[in-house]
């Protein structure tokens, strides 16, 4: 064994080195475009973002004129003023993620497991899941605003059935914002869970049944753990964009208790031209998401996803 191994090594050592070096060059060529793309459109902008977050106004300058500095106080000021919006963003994103999971998991389960083998039905259901994407994000959200409007049938029906107090409404409430987030990001939850469940070997479910596990127990001990990679991917794909979203909050929210951090960044950037505050809030949001996601992924034991 050791002789053959040694032989193999020496043979490989003599003959394989030039190809290996060639392979390394090939790797670089293959990685090149991606690396250049990342450096140009991620590393450089993030660097600029960090730099901008420390700028100070030009003394006596016009609106939106700043100069380079290391003014860390920008972060303190931004957080002191906007921490409620930041916390609310994560809270809303969390609620939307949970709602999307509760709604999306059964959808994915039916499509992947119940419709298994019926390719046409599966395809049709998947198209239906993705169908909202055929319309623009903003139009969809506006449509929601119309659907939930005070005079529209949802609210009138709920009033009629006394599901909603007579003076209560759905739009311009946190409920509307979280609903909008849930609706808009639901496909991002369904698709990864579907992919995970589709890979699930149905024979494992039979093995579970064979080993005295009732369907419910089989789901809890076999299906659910094996779909975890999809659940983790889905929750991340919903949580991250939801935390940074502002379209839903600005269209479906009000101006008191639904402000999300994305709205603040947008307003600071485009309306006030307060680039340092917008940049420092962006950095805080990015770091907070990284930390939360890191902790979550570590906890759920699916590091290989990262």
């Amino acid at each position: 064994m050791s002789i053959t191994a040694a032989l193999g090594d020496s043979v490989a050592g003599v003959a394989a080195e030039p190809p290996r070096r060639r392979a390394r060059r090939a790797h670089l060529v293959l990685l090149g475009p991606g690396l250049i793309y990342l450096v140009l459109f991620f590393v450089v902008p993030v660097g600029a973002l960090l730099a901008t977050s420390l700028y100070v106004p030009v003394p006596g300058g016009d609106v939106g004129e700043y100069q380079p500095a290391f003014h860390w106080q920008n972060y303190v000021d931004a957080l002191a003023q906007f921490w409620p919006a930041l916390l609310r963003s994560f809270w809303f994103a969390f609620l939307a993620t949970v709602a999307a999971l509760v709604i999306g998991y059964p959808m994915a389960y039916v499509i992947a497991v119940r419709a298994r083998g019926r390719k046409l039905l599966q395809g049709l259901l998947l198209v239906l899941v993705v169908a909202p994407f055929f319309t623009s994000f903003i139009l969809r959200t506006i449509a929601w605003k119309q659907i939930l409007a005070d005079d529209a049938f949802v609210v009138t029906a709920m009033h009629f059935l006394h599901l909603l107090p007579a003076d209560a409404r759905l739009t311009a409430t946190p409920f509307a914002v979280v609903s909008g987030l849930t609706y808009n990001f639901l496909p991002f939850m369904v698709l990864p869970i579907f992919a995970a469940l589709e890979r699930l070997d149905p024979r494992l479910l039979e093995a579970g049944a064979d080993l005295y596990a009732s369907p419910v127990t089989t789901f809890r001990t076999v299906t659910w753990p094996l779909s975890m990679p999809g659940v983790v991917a889905g929750t991340l794909l919903v949580f991250i964009p939801a935390a940074g979203d502002y379209v839903n909050a600005s269209l479906l929210g009000n101006n008191t208790n639904t402000t999300m951090i994305g709205q603040v960044i947008d307003a600071r950037f485009f309306k006030v031209l307060d680039y340092p505050t917008a940049a420092s809030l962006s950095v805080v949001l990015m770091v907070a998401i990284l930390v939360l996601v890191g902790a979550y992924v570590r906890r759920s034991g699916t590091e290989d996803l990262l």
Binding site: F41, F42, V44, P45, V46, G47, A48, L49, T52, F137, I138, I240, P241, G244, D245, Y246, V247, G262, I265, D266, F269, F270, Y275, A278, A279, S282, V283, L285, M286, I289
Partner: peptide, 16 residues
């Protein structure tokens, strides 16, 4: 809308 959709990195690119 893009600023919101692309999140922080997108905003960074625009800021830059």
């Amino acid at each position: 809308f893009l600023v919101a959709a692309l999140g922080t990195a997108g905003a960074g690119a625009l800021l830059a």
